[in-house]
Design a protein around this nucleic acid. Structure first.
Lengths: 109, 109
DNA sequence: TTGACACGACACCAAACAGTGTCATATAAT
DNA sequence: ATTATATGACACTGTTTGGTGTCGTGTCAA
């Protein structure tokens, strides 16, 4: 199969703490096989593999076979969607914006 | 009960598309009662209420009772954690960084 | 005072999730 | 040739999720 593309949502993919740790690990090491990634967690290989599949479905991770091992690498670009999304709300906590909001509310009265 | 504080994760809270729409709605209207929010969705009131509870547990939403209705308002500041998290990875897709990466890889040979 | 409305608090349900263990197979090492 | 390693694929399981419907209660309106 391999090209099973269930179009997984990025927000879904990064919701799980294990998957965020995987993303972080891959950010630091450029490329890592499954068994090495697994060594960083308490859970078994199968569980880690499933998480990587979800990350793959979200486009956050690429893999290639090298000999008997499957090496994973990070593809961070789908995270742009998250950044764009959250950037929209940054105005709600920036102090300048709170100041502006106050002024606008005063004007409306 | 009411002060049940299960310390819900922000990433978890924004994973669901319905909850992201709720956040957006509240960003646009400052304050809205449950029944009005519900009107924007296909699902029933109970379901929307549950999503709002999850948002509340993540600190993304505040509520106050006004007469017989419960009004919800956005509190975006927990989203800073998301922004900080994703900012770390922005270097992986910025074109300048890709350029730099190339240069470093060339140097290593 | 009698409804209509808004809501919280259940009980309930199917599907997804996050793990486990096992088996078969391809590759590497001895 | 044999053995150890790395993985994919699968079956299984308890828990969470995302929805439903219903009931009881407080509040507003006629």
């Amino acid at each position: 199969m391999s090209e099973n593309n269930p179009q997984r949502n990025v927000f879904d993919a990064i919701a799980d703490p294990t998957r965020r740790r995987l993303v972080r690990l891959l950010a630091e090491t450029d490329e890592m096989p499954l068994h090495e990634l697994t060594a960083h967690f308490q859970m078994g290989r199968t569980a880690v593999s499933k998480h990587l599949t979800i990350l793959k479905e979200a486009g956050l991770v690429l893999d290639r076979k090298v000999g008997r091992e499957t090496r994973f690498r990070l593809n961070a670009s789908p995270l742009q969607e998250v950044q764009d999304w959250v950037a929209f709300y940054s105005k709600f906590w920036s102090t300048n914006m709170l100041r502006l909001k106050q002024l606008l509310e005063e004007e409306e009265e």
